[in-house]
Every structure is written in C-alpha cells, then in structure tokens.
Design a binder for these strands. Structure first.
Lengths: 226, 226
DNA sequence: AAGCCTGCTTAACAATTTGATAATCTTAGA
DNA sequence: TCTAAGATTATCAAATTGTTAAGCAGGCTT
C-alpha cells in the first residue's frame, strides 16, 4: 500500500500491543512512532509532530490522561487528533478522557483490523495536506506550497516542470546531479525524452529567474549554486 | 442545561434503550427523535434532518447498515454524522460500518453518561472547522457567517459551493491547492465529479467578485492571491 | 400539482500554456 | 584548432484550462 505520509504516535506500556498495532498501521502506509510511557509520549510528540496520537490510559510515569492534558495545553497540539486506549468497563476514564479534550477512545482488546479501520476513519474527516517547507539560499527563496520562487522578494513564476526541476536541484545546493538522476527524478524512469529536453528547461529557469543559479558541469550534469 | 439546538435521531428496536438514552440526551439540551426500525429511521431522518444519527445495527425492517447505506446515498445526508450501535465483539460489523461511511461506532452496553460524553465529543469534532471568523485580505472581506463576500464593502453574493471554494482557497492566501485537495475538501473524497466542474466554479467566483483574486497554476491547481 | 427559479454538473468547443524536438549556434576542453 | 557537449531558438503537438450553454434536480411559489 502506498504511504499516506500520516504520522501516528502510539503510547502503551505493553510492548506486545505496541508492536502488533504499530506493525499493522505501517502495513497500511502510516508512519508510526511509539512510546512506552507518558513522558516519552510527550517528548516524542514534540519531536515528530504526529497527525494522530493514541494514548493508553494506564501508563507509567504519566497516565494517558495527564499526557493528553499537557499536550492539549500547547498550541501546536491544539488540533491534533488524540484518542485514548482504554480497557473495557473503565467508564470513568471514558468520561474523563472525553472531557479532557480527547477526540475519541478505543476500547481494548481491539483487533488490528478494527484499529486500522478506526484510524482510517479518523483521517477521513480531517485530511488536510501538510505544508512543505520553503528553501532559502541567499536572496533566493523557493516556496513549494506556492509554486513560486522569490529573488530579492520579487516573485518569479515557473511552469510545473521547471519548478520541480529547480526544487530538485536546490534541494542540495552545490551537489552535482547527473543528467540521469534528473531524468529519473523529474521525468520518471519509464519516460523517455530526448537529451536536449533538460537543457531547454534549465535554460528557461535561468531566463525566468534572471540570475545564474544553475551551473553546468560539462559531461556530467548540473548543480545549483549562487 | 441550555439547549444546543442539535438534533439527534436514535434508532433501536429496544424501547428501553431508546427511552433511557433519549432521556439523558434531552437532559443535556439535545433535541431527540427516535425510530424503532430501519425504515422508520430513514423516514424520520428525512423529516427532521438531524445533525447526528445513531443507528443500532440489529433492527427489524432494515438493519442499521442498510439504513446507513441508503442515507449516505442521498446528498442531504452526505455529511451528516452517522454512528452505529453494536454489540461487543461484533467486529465484522465495525469494519463494515466504517467502510460504509459511518463516522464511528459505539459498543453496547453503554451507560447513559458515556453516551452523552461521546455525543458531545462528536459535535466538538465537527464544530472545530466551523470557526467562522471573517477573513480579510486587502479590500476583500469574507464573512463565513453571512455567506457573503465584500469587495470595498460592496456585497457580492455567491452560491454555496462557490463560497465554500473561495473560503477554502482564501484560508491560505498564496498557497496552491491541488485540484485533488479541492475535490476532497469541497466535494468530499467519495464524490466523483468531472474535471471541468472546478473550473466552472472558479470562473463564477472570478466573475461575481469582479477582481481576479484566484490564480491558475497550470498542471497543479489554484491559489488565492490579490 | 404545475411552473419557475436557482444552483450544480456536464458536454462541447475555444483558447492558452506547456513540454519536447529539431535545427542551428557557441564554447569549453582536448 | 577541432570536436563534442551544451545553449538557443523556433516550432509543433499535447495537455490543460477557460467559456458558454444546456440539462437536471430540489425548493418555492402560485
């Protein structure tokens, strides 16, 4: 299954549960991180900024409820999906958890299949694309979100292929990309285009940006540098 | 407790359950309607247009799953919250239900208290996106509450889809939204509409607003910018 | 219930932009 | 100097979007 790019953090003190759930979510294309207690959950949450946090209620160090309270208090986790894992019949926890700002709870025991279904349904509601970060090299700023390049804050608009090519080269300034690498990355390994095609696109980028930020390495490829 | 105005429809074939849940939800300010089988649930849903529908899986006439399928097929219930009531261990129903477009399921037996908490959390979840602050960009002001756009204080009225689309794009000025993202957000991930549909709506917005505030990024999508 | 209005979607065609190629220069480097 | 790789330019086909009009369905009015 293709990766969805969604990051999930699971906190539970039972390694077995952690592993089986983690494994099944990964099979379904999620990026999974784990924590074995409340403190670790909080620390890892800050670290990886997950899209969904699953907290077991009963954990050492800090309970899931405490962890949730702490997380929710921070703006960065204000809108993160947080759900609790609870044992059956633990009604009090349910009520408390929901009042504390959890978005839902999941009762244990739970089969991996149901878990995956639930997780999918969480994301069905809140699917918003993650923002990619901008690249900044000297007076040049590339904004992948906007499909725009700014030179000294002057906006320069490139066509799709040109932009992709520039972003690719600029991803590692100074490094030379072989023509083959470029073809594979931007055009795909199965597409066949002529040799001059890359040149033409490079030319258009140079022309539109107005600064020579792409250097030719004859017989090898191109590199981005200012 | 003050009334929230939220309407809930509960369908279950056990009158006792119906009554006790209904009573507790009403205590918490919800308007509650009940149905005792699948057919009645569908009929009442059309009648009162509830904000949340709770369907028991095992019911006479039509099962909750069938009822859900029928309801979801109708545009008016496309985005209504629907949750299932299921007996424990009935995993198959869980999975099936979520795949059929239910938003969640609740396991029986369930205490009234937990039920109320869950219901509260459902509404909390769907209310978040409705943070209806007005958006103001330059001479353009968007009032989500009024479904109105003002340009230099001149009111421009847009149709629903047009308005939603504009609000979505304007939520992050400068950022390019892929056609796919737009489809998922405005039309829903399961609705299939033709390619030109977005264009036509974009055109109408541009036409009605009278200023070109939407930029096309060919091969990618659209972005809002003045 | 019939008719009208509005908004959503689609189809058909026009207009535009993009991407790839070919042909023709330039130039770095042997 | 000579040569091969790259730069330029023009051109064309394909992909993408814009525009218009027409069909349809739901809601409202009469």
């Amino acid at each position: 299954m293709a990766t969805t790019g969604k990051k999930i953090l699971i906190a539970d003190d039972e390694p077995d549960i952690l592993e089986i759930i983690s494994y099944n979510l990964q099979l379904n294309g999620y990026q999974v991180a784990t924590a074995k207690d409340g403190d670790q959950a909080i620390q890892k949450a800050k670290e990886i900024q997950p899209d969904l946090i699953i907290l077991d209620i009963m954990m050492p160090k800090k309970s899931g409820i405490e962890a949730c309270k702490i997380l929710r208090a921070q703006p960065e986790f204000e809108k993160t999906l947080i759900v609790f894992l609870t044992a059956l019949n633990d009604e009090l926890s349910h009520v408390k958890g929901l009042e504390l700002g959890a978005d839902d709870f999941i009762t244990k025991p739970i089969s991996p299949k149901v878990m995956v279904s639930k997780v999918n349904s969480f994301f069905r509601r809140v699917q918003k694309p993650e923002a990619s970060k901008s690249i900044e090299i000297g007076p040049l700023r590339i904004e992948p979100d906007e499909y725009m390049v700014y030179f000294n804050n002057e906006p320069k608009s490139l066509a799709k292929k040109e932009f992709e090519l520039l972003v690719y080269l600029a991803s590692k300034p100074g490094r030379v990309f072989l023509r083959n690498e470029i073809l594979n990355q931007i055009w795909g390994s199965d597409v066949i285009v002529g040799d001059r095609t890359i040149d033409v696109h490079i030319r258009k980028i140079r022309q539109k940006i107005g600064v020579d930020c792409i250097t030719t390495v004859k017989g090898v490829g191109y590199k981005f540098e200012l």
